[in-house]
Design a binder for these strands. Structure first.
Lengths: 235, 235
DNA sequence: AAGTGGTCTAGACCACTGT
DNA sequence: CAGTGGTCTAGACCACTTT
């Protein structure tokens, strides 16, 4: 049943991904070298090389000639719709990022969310944070988190770490889904973003999976006039 | 000064890409087999294989075991922010697509656009098309096209082909940039989309390059309530 | 000096498509 | 049948970083 004859390099990839998914390897951890994989898995070096090369290509690993192969961290994993870290984005523009934590609580979670997070008994962590760029509100982040993935979520200081960073640290990301749309802001969002109700908002709904489970569902609201998503693709 | 020691597989890729970019090979054309590349370029088969494999990975080529390697067509080239074909999207949902051509003309093009398209003497093709899904307007497509890339743009029947399809056919795509934002509609766009001025619009600005030149700049306006962008990413 | 990634080769076997 | 892609190997040389 072990697949109908998987290529060897796929087995090597699976070996490495398994160690990452299990949490044994975290971003920054060193991965086996090609020769170590050759010895451990009885494959040729070219096969190990192809496996690692493809994992680099998909953003999971990073290699440094002469030093070794490492689990890539956060930002590099992006690609399709970049997995943005709002704090890093702002800082990379040379501006000041400040997060205001409006809510950070355990709630009976709405049925729609419970469904998305595969939560049976209905309790989830809930946070509402406003991210400011030079004191101007840029993003409202409302997030529901699966307690099984991040049991300590309520005790994290989100003025110092973004929820996304924290979640990436405690549970390696496996899958991300983004839905981007343009919406009118709710009264709450308009207030938090200091917007008129008539101003359009760019909404990114992001669901993440970790350890084969839905880990979190976030709604990221951005003032249309202050935010855009950018992507380049070339052959 | 042909590069400071490019890997051989890069030279092989460049060889194939050159034949595509020049127009010698079009979507569907057969590319040299691995053995042909081995003989022609004096490389080992593994090197030719890697070059072709990477071009498949980036969506440029498609390979069929036992048959050969072919230049990929249109849709497969997607990925980052999917290069969507609105007509195909609508049809894949089992709905009826209809395009209404509002404008299709040669214009003195606005300075901002001229800059983007690297057009010196200021004339460009301009089209304004409304795409309907089951008779409901879904997208307003305003496009400026570099005449050097698509000299026959004005004589194409865009009720039968989308501009994107046409451009892909006459000039292989090299690079795409997308910027996604949420905006309030202009009066024109609101009318064409049958929207209130207060309803948010999802705007995708897409610039494409072909043959080392900017080929077209398009603004794609979508009613926020009827359209969303979706992207999944998994390791 | 030992280890690492980066590349390249010349062979090999397989499953598949075409004629 | 010859041709194709798909995979795999055991070696090789290089440039680089670390000890």
């Amino acid at each position: 049943m072990n697949a109908v004859a998987k290529p060897l390099y796929e087995l090597v990839k699976h070996h490495v991904l398994g160690r990452i998914r299990s949490g044994e390897l975290k971003p920054g951890s060193r991965v086996e070298s090609e020769y170590e994989l050759v010895r451990a898995l009885k494959v040729s070096r070219m096969t190990a090389n192809r496996a690692l090369r493809e994992l680099v290509q998909s953003g999971v690993l990073a290699r440094v000639p002469g030093r070794g192969t490492f689990v890539a961290d956060l930002r590099s994993a992006a690609h399709p719709l970049q997995i943005r870290n709002i704090a890093a984005d702002i800082q990379s523009r040379g501006h000041v990022h400040r997060a205001r934590v409006v809510l950070q609580e355990l709630v009976e979670c709405p049925a729609v969310i419970a469904l998305r997070l595969s939560i049976s008994h209905g309790m989830a962590f809930h946070s509402l944070i406003v991210h400011h760029e030079n004191e101007l509100p840029l993003q409202v982040e409302e997030r529901f988190v699966n307690p099984r993935i991040a049991p300590d979520y309520l005790s994290v200081d989100f003025t110092r770490t973004t929820p996304h960073e924290y979640l990436m640290a405690v549970a390696p990301l496996e899958r991300v889904e983004h839905v981007v749309s343009a919406v009118a802001p709710s009264a709450t969002v308009a207030t938090l973003l200091q917007l008129e109700l008539s101003e359009p908002v760019l909404l990114i709904e992001r669901t993440t999976w970790s350890q084969e489970l839905p880990a979190s569902f976030a709604c990221l609201y951005h003032a249309g006039s202050r935010f855009e998503l950018r992507g380049v693709f070339s052959i």
